[in-house]
Amino acid sequence: MSLVSITDVRKSFGPVEVLKGVSMQVKRGDVVAIIGRSGSGKSTLLRCINGLESFQSGSISVDGLEVGNGKTDLRTLRRYVGMVFQQFNLFPHLTAGENIMLAPTVVAKTLKGEARHVAEQLLAKVGLEGKFDAYPSQLSGGQQQRVAIARALAMRPTVLLCDEITSALDPELVNEVLRVVEQLASEGMTLMLVTHEMRFARDVGTKLVFMHAGRVHEEGPPRELFANPQTPELAQFVSGLN
């Protein structure tokens, strides 16, 4: 059974229809790389999955929870759906450790000591042991993004959404973040990534989705799609990258 099930989702911003009937199935443990030109609706789709955007028609469900239409409390849904953003969005008035501890203590009512222990473990996992007391402004972009990943993981999500998480990073910092994501993938975490890192999409992804003009234009195993695109749009997109 699919963990994330998206059926014929349509979404408009005013008169502009951004998603024109998107359907997609994501199984547990899948690493879905969503690629496409800017404006093709990739990020909007991702934001619909955890309810940051509403949509007009169609349905999305995550682990049996129906998104939107007021059927499921969004806060319940969001405990199972983590998200990492392009701009990190760390809270600047809190240290790295406090950023990670905030939701577990406030939302999940975990005790401070236990939350701190988990935060330290997660920081170690993303290669930032010893940075517990550092403020975001004292960290590099790559380090900030790794803290943001740890922060999302602290709520033990069943699926993690990554919205262009390396696009705001200097080129030399991209790999340290991708390595963390790759490690998560190898541990079986279900991931949906909007990304421009094609090599990563090909090597780590279990499934590639090419979005074009508000639709899923082509999808399948990444290596096959990259080697042998079936549509001229994907062929052009892939060739334009190199």
């Binding site: 940051l52 969001r78 983590g82 701009q87 905030l102 406030v106 939302v107 943001a148 922060r151 999302a152």
Partner: peptide
């Protein structure tokens, strides 16, 4: 930044939190 509020929402925090 609006992104901080979205980050909070994504962590299942309520508007009050």
């Amino acid at each position: 930044p609006k992104g901080h509020i979205e980050a909070g929402l994504s962590l299942a925090m309520s508007r009050w939190e």
